[in-house]
Design a protein around this nucleic acid. Sequence first.
DNA 1: GCTGATAATGATAATATTTCGCATTTCTAT
DNA 2: ATAGAAATGCGAAATATTATCATTATCAGC
Lengths: 157, 157
Amino acid sequence: MNDVVKRSNGALNNVGLKNTELKKAGLKATLPRLKILELMENSEGRHMSAEDIYKKLLELGEDVGLATVYRVMTQFEAVNLVSRHHFDSGLSVFELNEGSHHDHLVCEKCGKVEEFVEESIERTQHKIAKKFGFKMTDHSLYIYGICPACQEESSRT
Amino acid sequence: MNDVVKRSNGALNNVGLKNTELKKAGLKATLPRLKILELMENSEGRHMSAEDIYKKLLELGEDVGLATVYRVMTQFEAVNLVSRHHFDSGLSVFELNEGSHHDHLVCEKCGKVEEFVEESIERTQHKIAKKFGFKMTDHSLYIYGICPACQEESSRT
DNA sequence: GCTGATAATGATAATATTTCGCATTTCTAT
DNA sequence: ATAGAAATGCGAAATATTATCATTATCAGC
């Protein structure tokens, strides 16, 4: 018998695995943290604002406060479980850190986000930081545009 | 006799030139807009938040409301006189659009901003947008790090 | 499995940033 | 100079995020 928990709504599983995931990161495995982690892993759109996360948890009948979502996301960010992005909307969106580093392509119409990796850009960024004598700690690259679906839509009118 | 206006405090000059600059952009040449434009051209640190601009105008004895600063910056952005950036702090900073496009290197300690241009990155971004079928409208690249001065400082303690 | 120390949570108040509503003022074309 | 339209300043409202604090949950040690 393992850690996997069966739930009739199918929303939240693998509680035990996430439990260890949190402990390994040095965080107590509390219910809100488990639920948030699971929600993020099970959501298609992987880029969510604190408000998004809060609302989805309410929909799932989970009793989590918005302040807790913010606190938890900040902690998750500190231990590198998630990244925080500031898209042009001005608010913060969070993304689970799984797989390797990547950058983002954001549709200005519908908000759709594509991810991409471009090694040459990564290398060039390091080179630039070095040229200015900066010790590079982080970077963010967003390309904004209109996605294929939204181009379709506007040409159809 | 030309448009240049002499002022004893030396802060705000060239009123007439800016006047035409605004008209050309399709904006009425109002006092707040002229003052903001001049302030931005005469400030060393070219990246300012709305609050920064507001406070500096007050210091100069100009009577401009904070709401007006926000409105004007939004209009300036719309006609491409300024760019709006969302650095990781979360708040918006504005920058005068003069000279050619460039990206930013931001010090996480002192907030110092360096600008750079890297053609290869520009080209690659267009290539990526194209690959995903996006019509690219904009992009932002920020490299975060510790500037030389701040590295010095922390090693000296 | 209990239990107590400690840390985390939820509700709400507080703060910060940005926008809105509206009476008044300023621009600009005449 | 003047009228009509647009812009402004002020304060209130909206939005996003953080802080406060009484209550509750977690977990190490038994």
